[in-house]
Structures are given as C-alpha cells and as structure tokens.
Design a protein around this nucleic acid. Structure first.
Lengths: 213, 213
DNA sequence: CAGCGCTGAATGAACAGTCATTCAGTGGTT
DNA sequence: AACCACTGAATGACTGTTCATTCAGCGCTG
C-alpha cells in the first residue's frame, strides 16, 4: 500500500527493453570506452535495474555483440541501398550519394563511430568481433569496386585500378572518421569531407569536381 | 639446469627492465587486446615475477601509457627524420621515402599497430591517450602539408589543396593499416601499399608514377 | 655480510552473474 | 464493476571470481 509512485515499474515487451539496453550500451562505450563498460553503468544509463541486462541478453559479452551487430548492420544497410538502388541517373550521382552518405552526421554519428572503433581496436584478438566487422565489408568492397570500375570505363581511364581505388576509398573514409573522432579540432568534419572529395576528384576528375555542389 | 632453470634471474638496471616490460606489454596487447592485458600476463611474458611491473612503473595505467608513448615516439622519430633531413635529391624522392617508410614492415610492425589502434579505440573517452596520440600528429601534418605544397607548386597545380591532401594521406595510411590489420586476407600488405601509391600518383602525377619502382 | 633487485603469496576492490522476492498488469468470477 | 488469483517482468542484495597492488623476505653480488 505504500506509494512507489515516482518510479512506476512497468513491464515492456522484450524488444523494447533490448533496444533500450543497446542504446544505453552505445552511450556507455562512447563515454567510458569499451573497457569502462560495466553492467551497472549500462543499466543505470537505461534507468533500469542491475539484473535486467542478464535477463534479456544472457551475458555481458552477448550484449556487446548485439550492440556491435546493430551498429554494423545499420551502416551496411544504408550503404547497400545506395550501391544497389536503380534510382541514380548517372555513375557520378551514385558516387556523390555514397560520399554524402559516408559523411552524413546521422549515419556517421559520433557515438556509433566510437562503438565501431572501440570494437575494431580489440578485433585483432577477438575473432568474433573480427567476423562481425568483416562480414559485410567484403561485400561492400566488391560493389564499390564495380562502381569505380564503371566510372573508370566511362572516363576511358585504363591506368587506374578500380580495386585499389575502392580499397583506398574505404580506408580513407575509415581513417578520416578515426582522425576526426580522436581530435575534432585538428580534423573537423567538414575538412574530412573535403579531403574525401578531393581524393575522388583527383582519381575520377570527369565524375567528381572539386568545389562541392 | 639450476633450480630456477637456465634463465638465471639477475639484477638488471632499471632501464633494461622497463624496456623488457614494455616489449612484453606490446605482445600482450597484440595477443589479447587492451582489455585482456593483466599484470600477470605481462610479467609472465617477460619471464619475471608478478610484482616487478609495479616496482618499475607505479601502476598498470602508467605501464600502458609508457608503452603507448614508446610506440608513438618511435614512429614520429622516423617520420620526422624523413621530413626534415636534407638528404633527398628531390621532392619526389622525399615523398617516395615517406611512402616506403609507412609501409616498411619494421616500422609498421603488426604488434605495434595493434597497440596503436587498441589505444585509439579508447582514446575518445581517455584524454590522456588522446593527448599522446595527437601530440606529434599535429606537427607531422604541418610538415607533410608543406611537402605536398612544394610538390603541387613544382607541378604548377593550383587546384588541389595541400592541407586536404596531407589530411587525406594521413587518414589513408591509418585506414589501410587498420583494414590490413583486421582482415589481412581482404587487404594484404602489398595491396595496401599499392592503394596508397595510386592515391599519390593520381594527386601528384608528375612526382609519383603508378608502377612501383 | 650488507644492500639491492626481485619474488610471489596475500589482500582487498571491483565486477559479472544469480536468484529469492516484489508487484504491475491480466483475466476470470460473481 | 469490484474483487481475487495468478503470471512473469523487474529488482537489487549477494556470491564467487578476477585482478591490481602490496610487502615481508630471499638470494645475488660486490
């Protein structure tokens, strides 16, 4: 009969709780680093009790894996959309869309990038992380290679190698994200985008031009 | 074999022990990830007793910081040598040297890269790591910008921006290292080098040519 | 044999995971 | 509509474990 008023405890469907906990995990990783994530911090961030994370995910490890998976798949889905959609009028437009996507603040959200790089830092020694990170990357690389090959063909460029260009673009985006994340003052977001654009402009001058727009 | 085996434990000067422990730490980070590093593992790897790491470094945190510092400074020293030495006959030769340096297996040793990225993954939430990683990077970026500016001037290129080119090159190298480390099968070392060369060849065609050599 | 570099068992703090208990919500009964 | 019985989601004190750090003593070495 006592009023437990201020904290109404309400049952929620499994999926709602899981989502809540994953979002809290993303914030915790961004704020404290992967090694600073504890079950206590995650559940406090979510405004729930200690035990609940183990109720909905079996263990801390599984919660972390689900978090990585969510971030990875979200990115891959958006990228695949651009690379396979039939809606682009030209190769140039598709490449522009890819660039805009990679430097869209909603996609490349600071917290999610922090999650991504936190896991990559540990990936070398954790095959499970490695697998999740690599899985869709291979597929993406193939598609980007095909896209750049098309552009090179259209331009009549017989010297440049599309595979190297794709590997370079992917690595460049990773590197720009990373540098921008670690020290945003040295590499502001806008400068990162312009650096990527200049890369594409010098490799594919007939498709991408220097001044944005 | 004596009682404590053929590895006779002998008193060593402070610097020798510190170096030994840092090398062991590098191996442990590469093998187990930053979160998998324990004092027990480090000292076992070094063939010494548990307490010794706290004797020569005050704490685990300080041992890790010294390790990061060593790796960072080693790289910065080599790079600075190339960027400031008077020994290069041409701008092109200096750029070639920079490229060769960045993809020299001894410099970009797998274990040291693993250390570098392990710390970067945590850097966003640890100002101390961030400072160490960024410190010399700013200086390097300035020097690389100057080098590329010189090359652009020599080529009469008035469109490309040397600052963006430098930021791009630095990010590209980071990204290629990272991708190659996480999944060497998808991005073998040689392919990474060729991707970097193609980047420079397309931005500075008069200085760097496509076929290696 | 004195002093110093080193050892490793001991200590306590932090943490993941468990589980007995609580209670909001639901459906059945009158 | 009011009451009650029941369910299982949610809680948080508790447990066992892992790990950094300490320190009393050991054995080289000069």
């Amino acid at each position: 009969m006592t009023k437990t008023a201020n904290k109404t405890r309400r049952a929620q469907p499994r999926e709602v709780r899981r989502e809540q906990l994953i979002q809290a995990t993303i914030k915790c990783i961004a704020r404290h680093g992967l090694s600073g994530v504890t079950m206590g911090r995650v559940t406090r961030e979510a405004g729930l009790s200690m035990g609940i994370a183990n109720l909905h995910f079996e263990s801390k490890e599984k919660l972390l894996l689900e978090t990585l998976k969510l971030v990875t798949e979200e990115y891959a889905a958006g990228q695949t959309e651009i690379l396979t959609s039939g809606d682009y009028p030209s190769t140039a437009a598709r490449i522009e869309a890819l660039l805009a996507f990679d430097f869209n603040q909603n996609v490349a959200d600071k917290n999610k990038l922090a999650v991504w790089f936190a896991f990559l830092g540990e990936a070398k020694s954790r095959p499970t992380y490695q697998r999740i990170c690599s899985r869709q990357d291979s597929l993406a690389e193939e598609k980007i290679t095909a896209l750049f090959q098309l552009a090179l063909d259209e331009a009549g460029d017989k010297k440049a190698d599309a595979g190297l260009l794709a590997a370079g673009y992917i690595a460049l985006v990773d590197g720009l994200w990373l540098n921008s994340l670690v020290d945003p003052r040295r590499l502001p977001w806008k400068k990162a985008l312009r650096a990527a654009r200049q890369f594409l402009a010098s490799a594919l001058p007939q498709h991408i031009s220097l001044p944005p727009g």
